[in-house]
Design a protein around this nucleic acid. Sequence first.
DNA 1: TCCATTTTATGATTAAAATCATAAAACGAG
DNA 2: CTCGTTTTATGATTTTAATCATAAAATGGA
Lengths: 198, 198
Amino acid sequence: MITVELLEKYGVIKKSFDKNDIILEEGNLPSHYYQIISGEVKMSNYNDDGREFIQGIFYNGQSFGEPPLFLNQNYPANAIAVENTEIFILPKENFMKLLEENPKVSIKIIENLAQRLYYKSVMAAEISTHEPEHRVLKLIDHGIAYFNFQKDKNGYLINFTRQQIGDLTGLRVETVIRTIKALEKKGELKIINRKVYR
Amino acid sequence: MITVELLEKYGVIKKSFDKNDIILEEGNLPSHYYQIISGEVKMSNYNDDGREFIQGIFYNGQSFGEPPLFLNQNYPANAIAVENTEIFILPKENFMKLLEENPKVSIKIIENLAQRLYYKSVMAAEISTHEPEHRVLKLIDHGIAYFNFQKDKNGYLINFTRQQIGDLTGLRVETVIRTIKALEKKGELKIINRKVYR
DNA sequence: TCCATTTTATGATTAAAATCATAAAACGAG
DNA sequence: CTCGTTTTATGATTTTAATCATAAAATGGA
C-alpha cells in the first residue's frame, strides 16, 4: 500500500467502478498501477465452459495486477468489482519513477508480492494434493489471517458464499455445501442460520 | 539474481549440497537468502500420505525461499537438491542491508517475485479448472519459456520425468503417461525413445 | 411488497482420474 | 558388467467429486 500523498505527488487519478464492472481484462497488456480506495475487487479466470477460478480478492488499501505490469506480459486473469469500488490509478511510467525515487516503497511492494506468493504456494499444494475438507479449512484459516473476516461472539464470520469458496478452492458449490456440513458435524465450524463461523 | 561481487561485499558464503540433500525444511523459520551457483533445487510439499506437490524447480543464478524470509513466516515447503548443488548463502541482516543500500536490486527481486507469481496464477487456474491434457500442455509451454529446456532438431526437449510433470500439475504418473500419449496422437507432442519433445 | 435472482440444500447418477496390479526398459552406482 | 532402482507402460477396478435434477429459503431491486 502506497500512501495517498505519495501517489498524488506522482499524478494519480481516482476512478469509480459499479458492482460487476470489469476493471481489467485477461489478455490485455498492463499500463497502470491499481490501488483500491474503497470497495472490493476479485481477480479471476474463466475456462472454456465458463467455470470460474478466483485468483484472489482484494480490499481497501490493497493493490492488484502488478506482476504483469512489471513483466510487460498480458494479464493472466480479469479484475472485476465485486461491489461499487473506488480505485487509484497511476500510469506505469509515473509508478516506476515513484519506485526509483522512493526505495522504501520497493520493500513494501516486495512484502506484498511475497505475501501473495505465500498464499498461492499454500493453496496450490492444498488444491492438488488434499481432500475437500482440508482445502476448505485451509482457505478459511488463511482468510482469517488475510481477508477481512470479522470476529463476533460466535467466532470469525466467514463472509464468503459457498460458491466463492468453491471458486477459490477449485470445488463445485454442491461439494462445498456438503463439505461445510461435514466440517460442522466434526466440530471444526459452526453454521448459524446459514452463515459459517470458525 | 544478485551479482557475485555484490554478494561477496556483504559476506556471502558458499555451501555444497549432495543430490537429495535437504536444503531447507517446511515449518522452519527462515534466516538466510539462497542463490544457486550451480545444480538444481526443487521446492515441494508432501501431504499426509506422502504425495508430493512440486512448487517450483530452480537453476543457476536463481534464488528461492525469499517470500517467507521477507514475511518472517515458516517455510511452506521443503527445498531439496535434485543433483549436486552449490549455493550462495547470505544471512538475513546482511541481505536486508544489501537491499537498502542497493535500490536497483529491489527492482530485480520484485521482477523475480512477479515472475513466480505469474507462473503460480496460471498453474493454479489450470490445476483447478482444466482437464489433464490442458494442464500438461500449459506446464510444458511455460517450461519452454522459463525452465531451461533445450531446442534440437526434434523441437524442445522436455527434460522432466512423467513423475515430475505429475507432481507439478497435481496428476498421478499413470495419468500423465496416458495424457502424454494422447497428446502425441493429437500431434501436440512428439515422443522419441521415451523422451518428450514439443 | 412483490418478483426475479441468488444462495443454500439434498438425493441420484455418472464420469474421470486415482488406485491397484504387474512388468519391461532404462539408468546408474559400485 | 551387474544388480538394484527408477522410469515408462498398460489393463482392470474403484472411489470421489462432478454432474444432473429439483426445490426451499433468502436477498435485493423496482
